[in-house]
Each structure stands twice: as structure tokens, then as C-alpha cells.
Write a protein that binds this DNA or RNA. Sequence first.
DNA 1: GCGCTTTCTTAGATCGATCTAATACAACGC
DNA 2: GCGTTGTATTAGATCGATCTAAGAAAGCGC
Lengths: 345, 345
Amino acid sequence: MTGASDRSRRVTLMDVARHAGVSRATASLVLRESPLVAEPTRLKVRDAVRELGYVYNRGAASLRMRRSHTVGLVISGLANPFFADFIEGVERELRPAGYVAFLANTFDDPERQGMLIRTLLEHQIDGMLIVAAAGSSAEIGVPPEAVDIPYVLATRPVPGVAASYVGTDNRAGARMAVDHLLGHGARRIAYFGGPEDGAARMERQAAVAERLAESESDLDPAWTVPSPVSTTDGQHVARALVSSSAPPDAVIAHSDAIAFGVMRSLRDAGIEVGTRCRVVGFDDVEQARAWSPSLTSVSVKAATLGGRAAQMLLERIRAPEIPPESLVLEPQLVVRESCGCGRDS
Amino acid sequence: MTGASDRSRRVTLMDVARHAGVSRATASLVLRESPLVAEPTRLKVRDAVRELGYVYNRGAASLRMRRSHTVGLVISGLANPFFADFIEGVERELRPAGYVAFLANTFDDPERQGMLIRTLLEHQIDGMLIVAAAGSSAEIGVPPEAVDIPYVLATRPVPGVAASYVGTDNRAGARMAVDHLLGHGARRIAYFGGPEDGAARMERQAAVAERLAESESDLDPAWTVPSPVSTTDGQHVARALVSSSAPPDAVIAHSDAIAFGVMRSLRDAGIEVGTRCRVVGFDDVEQARAWSPSLTSVSVKAATLGGRAAQMLLERIRAPEIPPESLVLEPQLVVRESCGCGRDS
DNA sequence: GCGCTTTCTTAGATCGATCTAATACAACGC
DNA sequence: GCGTTGTATTAGATCGATCTAAGAAAGCGC
């Protein structure tokens, strides 16, 4: 009697209204906490909802309301632990605002990204948070005029796209890393990994080269090898480069995930990390602290970044007419063991 | 003229039909590749779709169809790298079937899990894939009669719930780990971490105790400390236990994430991993191979597991009447350095 | 009792698709 | 020419909510 149970048709607002002895419209008002409804009526409806086990049909509602309370979350590669934190930050903002996220993983493939975005659009999302696949051209995979919902780019800027953006100051982060390594006496500094045509990688590399030039050194092009962002890839890249006759005495890795792989390859080659070769990563993921040696990393506070990106998106959904804005967070160098601190200083 | 552009109202199927000079119904048939439509008509409609930049409205469609092509993906803790692989496996199955996933992260909190599931249900998902929060009672957070859609439990069995389940043979995995450690001469074996009332943890712990009993040893209750599944937590748990007068000579960690933290604490306490204390993890995440020393781990092939779970869910969505089934995958011990192999054998 | 607010409720149109049942139009056999 | 069959198309109802505009009820002043 009381439970919803197994009737084939779902319980609808109409059923609730009938059961409470009011109209559909009134029942609807109660659900939306409208102040227009008198207290006794409100209670009757609430009871009916409970007794019938009614479940609100957001799909039907958003058809009318033109708002699905749904956003797309397009990520370049979930395997990177950075995104675990990032997504947590995003969710923490979305949830209280009544939004849920569709997750889409592009594996850093712009074509796949286009497909996924098209699918998300069909699901009537209200907005998108995009960590663009490396090599995304101006269209982020779909013709820009087709995307008539607000979106925010995170972490990876896409050249030529005038959308809102939240990211880190890559140049500043890279300079910090180089400065610190130079302070340790390192001179032969390499930049390992990162997607081939990723904007973040290019910015950081340029900053590294620039800083090295200032101290009359330079960045050997052979030491700037792109790679996908994973530990395994970091291991491969480093293995090839480290066995050369004159290996680098310091490595800046494009991400912590890559740095982990790099450190492993160094160890395998018999090169002690922190003394013969110093390593600095990017992202400051959770495991950086626990690794042996613990990883010095340029922290970009993934959760904060995700949170701010989500805030910005919600803002734009509320007021789409505001012009795109950019937010560049200042990174911070978290000094641990892999750079040599606590060993030689 | 040709582009969709910025008209305030979205382009609808009605517009497409008008533009192509056919009826709404016909246009709909074309979109769904119905063989009923004559070739010339089909082409006219296709052109109209392209010219107007029409985007299919799945929300409207599913209202009528009673199928949203959407599933919920409820995860206990994204921070665990295990789930990166798991989700990749899930997505790889869902995508080609035309499904997208809503992501929800419960932080291992049954109450939050209930809230999230209710929200997902409101969004008219067709099914759910749940990695239950530890301590989920029989209701997985919502009254079971309210959940009238198929769902599949993954990794964590929930006692008392007769739903489909995909997981690993925890007992077998635990026995493998113990066997291997015993073979190395370890006698004082601990089981560290895992959520307090998690079924997986209990199963494994029981198996460890059982196996130890067989070899006339036993599992010291003080050495079976629960903890959340993260590297930081693993570090904390181990720090406390390892500084005792008679520390264990081997540790089985509930997950690789925890094992990483444990190894760090061992190192900090001056205990060499692989000789004075051997460590085995669970999950075989990507970083296990690269860690120093590399982590011996009971592999549960997260991506495979996710994929199978997704397959099972899709199957149940297609045919909800089939009785719940269980799939228990056999784990595999991936031997690396942390157990002492390559050092003393 | 009448008009005028104020407060509460509701009928009916609407969002954008699908689905059913009906229809228009050939072609065909006889 | 008539019924039959088959192919291609469509009008109109429908899914389950919201929203507008209008109606009913109650309170109040005089």
C-alpha cells in the first residue's frame, strides 16, 4: 500500500496531486518550495510524495525549463592522478548548486573529444568544463557556432579560443623550478614529457629556456621530449635519454606522474636521484610526498583549480552574457627530497 | 545563413522538418535511420539537419521513450588511482553502446551515497554501477523499493543485497599474498588499512588469518588497522605500528595507494622494504611498477573489472527480468621487488 | 451587501521528441 | 474498374513536468 513497489508505470506528479486531492500545478509548486502554497496543502502534498514514493523527473522538468542542471566534464586523461583531485574540487562546487556532471575522458585525442562533446550537447547540458586534449585547434573539436552553451577551459589554454579559462601560471612555475635547481648547482637541465602540441608544455619549456639563457646556459633540444602524461611514458622517455654519455644533472618533468617514471629510470640506470640527478615535477599530487625520494613539485592545487573552474562555469550559466574571463593561479614550489634538499644543502 | 548561430530558440526537429518540406514524424524517422523512409526524402532531411546545425534533444526523446541512455557511476573514492583504470574500463564499454555516465563520488560515506543516488534517480538514469561506500547497509543508502532500475555492484559486495555483482576473489588474492610472503620466510605478517566495515577488507583479513593459522601462526589483531584508502592514510597507519618494539616482518596493504604510504613510513623508520619488512599491495595500479622499490601487488585488473561490470549493467538494462548474477574474477600476484624478490631469493 | 485586495488554486498550453493508427498513392492481378 | 497489397508519409496523442493567466475564496472597509 505505502511503498512505490513494482507497478510498471512510474509514479508521476499527477498521481501525487490526485492522491493529495490537489491539482498538478499545486503539487508542482510544493516541490519547488513556492511560498504561494498554504501550509496545510503543502503538508498534504508532502505526505502524498512520501506515501507514493514519488521520484522527481528532472528530464521532464528541464524540457520545459530549458535547464537540465547538468554539466559536462571533459577530461584529457583520467589516469593522471592530478585529475582525481581536480574532479573532487569540481564536484565540491557543483553539488551544492544542484548540478551533476557527465564525465567524459578524451585520452588526449581531439577527434574523440569532438565526438564526446557532441554527445554531451545532445544530452542538453547547461555548460561544459573542458581540459582540452592536446592539439585541440580553435574549435575544440566541434564547430564553435554549434556550441551555444557556456564553457570554461581548465588547465590547458587553447590558442585562438576566446573562452573563459582557469589555469596556472606555467611560466612562473617553470622559472621557480629552474631557479631552485640552479641554486642547487645544476647546470644541465632537461624538460621531460608532456603532450606534443600542448600549450602548457610549450609555455613551460619556453620559460625554462628563457631562464637558462639568462644564466648563460641553454636548454638542449634533445632534452625536451614530449610524451603522454603517464608514469609508464615518463619511464620510457627517461630511459632513452638517461643512458647517453652525458646525461642531464636535473630534470623538470611535465607532471608528477611522469616524474615518477623518470625517477624510476634514473634509479635503474644507477643514477641517484637528488644528488647526481635532481628531479622536479608539476602538480604536487598526493603520492609525491610518499615517493622515495619524495618529489619536489610545482604545486598547482588541483582541487582549488577545479573548484574555481566550476564556480566560473556556474557563474556563466547564470549570466551567459558576461564576457569571458581568465583566472591564472600562482603556483608554488613544494620542496622535498628529489631536488637534493636535505641531502646536500 | 547556413550556420545555427545565435537565435535564442534552439533549432528543433520541427524546424528541420519544415526546412526539408516534410513532417515532424518523417524527420524523426530519418534521425533514427528507419528503413521506412525513401532515399530522396532521407537526403532532404539530412541536408536540413546540416544546414540548420540541428542538435538532437535526447532529453525530450527520453521523456517519450522511457530510456535516457544515461547511467550513474557511483565511486567510493576517486583519489584512489585504482578507479582511474576502473572508470576507463567502464567508459570503453558504455560509449559504443551509446551511453554516457554521470559521475558521483561518495568519499566512502553511506549517507552521501544515498543523497547522490537519489539525485541520479531524479535524472532518469537507466541503471547504476555502484562501488558501494564501506558500511553500506542493505539499502545502499536508499530504500530498495525506490530503486526500480537495474544496478550492478562492483568491487565491494554489500551483504544482504541480492544485486548483480562483479568483483575479485578476495580470499584467493589474500592467500596468494600470504603464501608468497611465507615462502620468503616472513612470519609476523600484518594486514594494514581498508575501510572499517568494508566487506572486501573483512574477506581478505579472514583469509589471511585462516592461512596463517594453517601454518601455525596467527594474525595479531593489533596489526589489522582499518584506514581510509589513500596514500596519506597508509602512511599514518604504518607510522604508528612500525615504531613498536617488535614490528611486523611483512605487511599486506589493503590497496596499492595504502602500500605506498606504508613503504614510506617504513623507510622513514629506517626499516628497509623487501628485506627487513616485505610489502604486498592490492590493485596493481600503474605506479606500482615504478615505485622504489617496485611494489608486488595482487592484480585485480581494474579496467577489465570495470568493463565487465559495465557489460553486465547494459545487459540488465536490455533485459531487466534476468536474475542477478555474480562474476568473481581471479586475481593474480604480480611479483616485483617490495616482497624481497630479486634481493634474497 | 458590494467592491476591492490579498491569498491560494487550477485549467490548459507548452517544451521537443516518439509512436500509433490512419491515409495517400502506386502498382498489380484479374 | 475494383479490390488488394505494399510503400511512404503524416496528423495527433503522449511522455511529465512548468508557466501563464485567470478564477475562487477569504478578509476587510464602509
